[in-house]
Design a protein around this nucleic acid. Sequence first.
DNA 1: TCTGGGGTCCTAGGACCC
DNA 2: TCTGGGGTCCTAGGACCC
Length: 417
Amino acid sequence: MIDCNNFYASCERVFKPELRGKPIVVLSNNDGCVIARSEEAKQAGIPMGAPAFKYEREFEKHGVYVLSSNYALYGDMSRRVFETLSQFTDELEMYSIDEAFLVLTKPKGKTWNELGTKIRQKVKQWTGIPVSVGISTSKTLAKVANRIAKKNGTFNGVCATMELESLDKWLHQVQVDDVWGIGKNYAELLHNHGIDTALDLKNAPDTWVKKNLKVTGLRTVWELRGTPCIELEDVVQPRKGILSSRSFGVPVSDKEQLREALVTYTSRAVEKLRSQRSAASQISVFVKTNRFSKTEKYIKQNYHVSLPEPTNDTTTFLKCVTLALDKIYEQGIRYHKAGVMITAITEETALQSDLFDSTSADSKRHELMRKLDHLNAKLGRNTVFFGGSGTHAEWKMKQEFKSPSYTTKWDEIPIVT
DNA sequence: TCTGGGGTCCTAGGACCC
DNA sequence: TCTGGGGTCCTAGGACCC
């Protein structure tokens, strides 16, 4: 298991060397809360998820560099890391934007540790991103090993459980909360039963675990014992649901503005649907007010539309969205967030055979979508877009501190002089 | 004033079938 | 008075992940 250290902060540092050794935080969309911190920011006591506006003074006090998130950059850097890792194996799972599982074979005459160190150095050299390496016999144990490597300086970023003197001794030092698959609720339940460490969990009776933590929890326990129960998923599966939503930079009350936002989100969602060669027959539209507001009631509205057959034509979904908006919109409400969720996803090949009759309306629209995707892929996102998205976007999310798209936009590529 | 945006899987319970 | 024993499918909600 390879995990990039403080990934978003590290990406920013690659192109701004002056940020090395400095505290950095990266904010969520809309510059809402802290979603990534450099080691120095962690040291300064900035918690994960901290609302930025509440921490402005802390940022100033510790000289923290604050950045908006730049997913174009992180996505591209992630791709480079995976590409580098793929040199070491044919079996690689891209688990998240900054983590990968690899099936490794120990080279003759070398230790696991040496292999891990080589991987670590290669990624650093080729991408500029520091990573930690955890090697073991199950995914969950590899995760634990990775954590041990990251938390204990003496490991130099690499830990192979097979080369530890006593794994149990280390498992005893890992809180059950930090085990992959154990979240807040299960951790509390476990603590209430005197199961506090990864070692305690490893030794818990199967029947109790199955009853209280269900089958997924039992898998975790077996994995801690070194029996793999969670397979490597090296083939990227198409999404079963596609969600596109955003909080607004400012509250939106105007119906036309709300529609613009929803048209924009729907276009994105259906584009994603097409890019994975799928079609779908259901869409849900939702709007929400600010759930933190002390003066206004929290309102959530959801409207679901089912289509008679799957499609991946944006205009069809846009009609559903207009219909939904008419149902749920209420005048005088300050909406804070809106989005669409596409479900009932099938393979594109399941589309009605009408498409093969090139004179049919469906077929023409299908061709239009293909051209649209092609233009946007070649010339940049939003080169061609739906008029309903509007052109002024007063509701657009806040991004006050975004770094350039160094690696994905021609006019933002760094210039060496 | 200002608090993100994606995903997955499992289970229980209800509706329905014979 | 006494009222079986199998199934399937769908949905909502809850757990988890990054």
